[in-house]
Design a protein around this nucleic acid. Structure first.
Lengths: 251, 251
DNA sequence: TCAAAAGTGTTTCGGATACACCCATGA
DNA sequence: TCATGGGTGTATCCGAAACACTTTTGA
C-alpha cells in the first residue's frame, strides 16, 4: 500500500489487508515559536481537517502500525510515541457520507470503528509534513487554533493533551520536542506552553538542572536582541538512565 | 445472549452480534483480609484461568460493554471502572487450540483480537462471583498468587496494577474497595497493599483526614483483640466535590 | 499485668516558592 | 544609555517524614 495506491484499490483491498473496525489516530505534537502545534491533514474531497490516522495490518502489532503511520506522515523514525486511550463510542464516527459515494467496495470502511489514540512528540524543524494519497494537505496548526475536525477528533486531541500533561511529571519531554541544542528559556517556554501557565525562571532552571540530564555547552545562542543565553543539550546516557527509574518531577 | 445461550449458538451468532476482532478484558480488584484480590474465571473445558472478558455489541458503547461484563460477573452495578490500555500485539492471543474444535462457526473467534483493558474496583463483600455459561468457575485470587493465565492476561493484570497505583494520587480508591464503614487501619492496609510498601500510621491518618472527605462515626469496631478503632465512612457530598477538582495526593 | 494495637501531637527536614541583584546586548 | 532579557543566589514557607507517649483491650 505505498504511494501508487488508488483510492479505489484501497477500498477494494482494505478489507483483506487490515483488521476490521479498528483504526489508529495520531496526535502529533511539535513545538515552534513558543507554540505547541499539532499536525493535521485535509481530505482531498472536502474541507474537513482531521488527525493523521490509519489502520492495522492483519499481522502487524498495533504499536508498529502507529509507528508506520507516523513515519509516513512526518518522515521521521525513532519517534516518541505513546498510546493514551481507545475511543469506543458507537456514534463517534457516524457521518461517513463523504465516503458513501464509493459504494459497496468501501463497505468495510463504513462500519463503526473503534480508534486507538497515540500521541507523538516530534522535533518540529525535522518534520516536512507529507500528505498521503488520500489527503490534499498536511500541515501544522497552533494548538489553540485547531479548527472543527471530523468525528470526535477534537476530543481526541483534548485527551492527548491531558495525557501529555500528566507525562510531564515522568518524562523529560523536551528531549523529543526540542532540537539537539536549545536554551533554557526555550525549554521553559515549552513547559509553560504545555501547562498553559507561567513558571518562575530561576526555579525552573534549578529544577531542570537538578535532574542531572542536561549538559551546558560552551556555545551561546547569538542573534537575539539581548544577552546571549547558553545552549544546552541532553546527556543521552544520563537521560536514559534516569528514564528507567522514572523521574518524579512535579510541575 | 442471556443465560440460556449455548456455546454453539454463541459461535454462530457472535459474528452478527459483536464487533469483530475486538474484545474487552476486565481486571476486577477487590480487597479482603489485607490482601488485594482479582476475580478470575476458568474455562469449562480445561484448567485455564483467565480474566473475565467479553465482546462489544455492534451498537454498544465500549464503556457500556465493560459495564455489562462487570455486572454479569459480579452482580454489581454502579461500579468504578476505568479503561487503562489497549493490547494489540498480533501474537497476544495465539493459542486458540482450545476453540478450534468448534470448526467453521467459530471462525470469527479464531481471528486475531485486540483487547481493551478495563480495571474495576469493587467491594469484596458485596460480590458473589458468577461464572457464565462458558466458564466452570469464577473466584477471587490473591494478587500475589495469580496462576499462569491464558494469552497475555498476566501482563494485563500487571499493567492494570500500574494504572491503579497511579490513580491513587488522584482518586480516593477506598471509596470503591472498602465497605461503607471501615477503620483507619483498614484504609491504611489497603494503601499499603496496593503500593506494596509500609506507611507511617500517624502520617497516613493525617493525610487521609486532611482531604476532608472522611467522617468519623461514633461507633468503634469491637471484637478485635486490642483497642477498638473508630469506624469511618466517606462523606458522599464532599467526596464528589473533591472528585471533580482532582485530589493531588502523593503516596 | 502485659503485649499489642490504636489515638494523638511535636519536631525536623527538604523541596518548592518567592524574591533581588548583576550582566550582556542591540536599539 | 537604556530597556530587555539572561545568569545566579538566598530567605522563607509549607508539607512530608520521623518520631514518642498515652490509652484501650483481650489474653
Amino acid at each position: 500500500m505505498k504511494k501508487k495506491t488508488s483510492f479505489k484499490e484501497f477500498l477494494l483491498r482494505g478489507a483483506q489487508l487490515y483488521m476490521p473496525c479498528l483504526s489508529i489516530d495520531c496526535v502529533i505534537f511539535g513545538f515552534h515559536d513558543g507554540q505547541l502545534k499539532v499536525l493535521l491533514m485535509k481530505w482531498k474531497d472536502g474541507d474537513n481537517w482531521c488527525l493523521p490516522g490509519g489502520f492495522i495490518l492483519k499481522e502487524e502489532a498495533m504499536d508498529d502500525a502507529a509507528i508506520r503511520i507516523l513515519q509516513d506522515r512526518t518522515g521521521l523514525n525513532d519517534i516518541f510515541l505513546q498510546q493514551f486511550y481507545a475511543f469506543g463510542d458507537p456514534y463517534r464516527d457516524r457521518n461517513k457520507d463523504r465516503l458513501k459515494i464509493q459504494g459497496k467496495y468501501g463497505k468495510w470502511l463504513m462500519e463503526r470503528f473503534v480508534t486507538v489514540g497515540y500521541y507523538a512528540l516530534v522535533e518540529f524543524s525535522k518534520v516536512s509534513p507529507q500528505p498521503d494519497w488520500l489527503s490534499e494537505e498536511c500541515k501544522w496548526f497552533d494548538l489553540k487554533k485547531v479548527p472543527k475536525l471530523i468525528y470526535d477528533h477534537n476530543a481526541i486531541i483534548t485527551k492527548a493533551l491531558g495525557a501529555l500533561r500528566l507525562s510531564l511529571n515522568d518524562y523529560p519531554v523536551g528531549y523529543n520536542l526540542l532540537p539537539e541544542k536549545f536554551t533554557m528559556p526555550e525549554l521553559q517556554s515549552l513547559y509553560e506552553t504545555i501547562l498553559d501557565k507561567p513558571l518562575d525562571r530561576r526555579n525552573f532552571q534549578k529544577k531542570a538542572l537538578s535532574l542531572g540530564i542536561l549538559e551546558r555547552t560552551k556555545e551561546r545562542k547569538t542573534g537575539g536582541a539581548h544577552k546571549a543565553p547558553y545552549l544546552y543539550r541532553f546527556d543521552k546516557k544520563k537521560y536514559e538512565k534516569a528514564m528507567k527509574q522514572g523521574l518524579k518531577l512535579g510541575f
